[in-house]
Amino acid sequence: MSAGAGEHPVAFPPAALPFAPVQFTGRHVVSISDFSRNDLIHVLELAARMESSKSPARLDGKLMATLFFEPSTRTRLSFEAAMHKLGGKVIGFSDAGSTSTKKGESLADTIRMVERYADVIVMRHPRDGAARLASEISTVPVINGGDGGNQHPSQTFLDLYTIAKLFPALLSGERELTIAFAGDLRYGRTVHSLLTALCHFKVRMLLVAPRGLEMPEQYLNAAAKAGLVVQEVPTLQEVVAQADVLYMTRLQEERFPDPLEFDHIKHSYRITAAMLASAPAHLRILHPLPRVNEIAIDVDATPHAHYFAQAGNGIPVRQALLSLVIGTV
């Protein structure tokens, strides 16, 4: 089991469980950098309990407000499903066009109003830092469902949960995992946040990115400071042979000044079933979804595809976050 890669329910080694008690009630979930190693493990452990338990802690009578100033169906549905599963209720809006923001209401005023009737606020906003601003105003916990290109911490928690479930060695440390990131590492916020979180664990990182879209220096420095071995690798094929986890991200055409260059690059950053022929059996491919071309459809049928299971992990992770900040566990 410790080699991992089976989609088993809770597989956390007991060694990972004894941690210092963590106070979560009333806490905002704005940025992954706000969380210590203990915090992260606490959330993952509770997510595992949420997933395995027939009747997880209930949030009956609690109300979650989803303030989506820009649409994100995926994130909103996942939070709403998590809240409903816990017995709570949901109010909210799913795009700013339908709100008073359009009439010029400030974000601060929207929060001051909503905090009076919700027990927790989940928000997504096109501006970087919007969730931090909201958290400074709100007396109820604010969970950031994405602020511009900055943070999306529940995604990072679910990524981490997915890796920990596949490879318990992430938490037990009995083996050093090799985790590869591929694609746009410069602008991809999911990989920035995940790397920040992985700094708390003993992993080896492989990075594959087109020239100009490499991982920014500040994250590389933080990883080096945390003692992670980070290696930049020239091709996807090289990564496939060595990695436990391959985390793929989208390449966006608008990042390339030359459309011909994009055309060329997008083929070298696309993973296909044929490329996986030489991969070790336990290699798992993750992706924050939606994918475009970077993962060929024929990969879906291979045992390496794990991105849909990953998305499913969003439910127990968001159940855990909601219960923790509302304070029912």
């Binding site: 974000l107 601060a108 501006r127 970087d128 830092g129 931090r132 511009g148």
Partner: peptide
């Protein structure tokens, strides 16, 4: 200096 920073769009 980030043009998309919330502080450049809200009175904050």
């Amino acid at each position: 200096a980030n043009p998309n920073c919330v502080t450049n769009h809200e009175r904050w």
